[in-house]
């Protein structure tokens, strides 16, 4: 058998049985090609057009004879897998529920505060000509992202930074 590397550039002509000799096919099926255009016959002595080795390799591995891999479970194992799957779904549902309630709690807190603010004036009591002024200002959405520091977009990492929190930060 030819070695694998000597086959470079001849991918279009590979029969599957040359690469996997253990697997014998009654009918040798051609491996599907990347390009749908007609492959030119090789000229005598010159070889075909030069093929990219990487593409050849990708084609080789994508057409691996062991795909798709079967996932075979015994009866008890399948049952166990089902139980694990159900447990995970339940766990996620509970987690989602908890997060939603957390958000709801914060929303309610905001709503109550805004409602209180809407009904009172500058002296903290209902009425007066400036009743609801603070509320009106609080509801403004103009420029609310102004001055948002870039660090606000920092995402959480699995491991903390080497320098830790910058306690020594100075303005200006």
């Amino acid at each position: 058998m030819k070695s694998f590397w000597s086959l470079n550039g001849l991918a279009g002509t590979w029969p599957a049985c040359q690469i996997f000799p253990s697997r014998t096919l009654a009918v040798q099926l051609p491996i599907s090609r990347f390009s749908t255009s007609a492959t030119l016959q090789a000229r005598k002595g010159k070889g075909g057009p030069k093929k990219d080795k990487r593409i050849v390799l990708i084609r080789y591995f994508l057409n691996h004879p062991r795909t798709p891999r079967p996932l075979r479970f015994s009866r008890l194992r399948a049952l166990r897998h089902w139980a694990i799957h159900r447990a995970w779904n339940l766990y996620k549902a509970k987690q989602r529920d908890r997060e939603e309630r957390d958000l709801e709690r914060m929303y309610n807190s905001m709503r109550l505060a805004c409602e209180e603010l809407r009904q009172i004036g500058e002296n903290g009591m209902p009425g007066g000509k400036d009743e609801g002024r603070l509320y009106r200002v609080a509801m403004e959405k103009r420029n609310i992202w102004q001055g948002a520091p870039i660090e606000y977009a920092r995402i959480q990492t699995d491991w903390p930074s080497k320098s830790g929190w910058n306690h020594e930060w100075k303005r200006g």
């Binding site: 914060m106 905001m110 109550l112 505060a113 805004c114 603010l117 609080a138 001055g147």
Partner: peptide
């Protein structure tokens, strides 16, 4: 950075 104009609780 003070987030937003609306109060979050009272």
């Amino acid at each position: 950075w003070v987030v937003g104009n609306a109060p979050i609780g009272y």
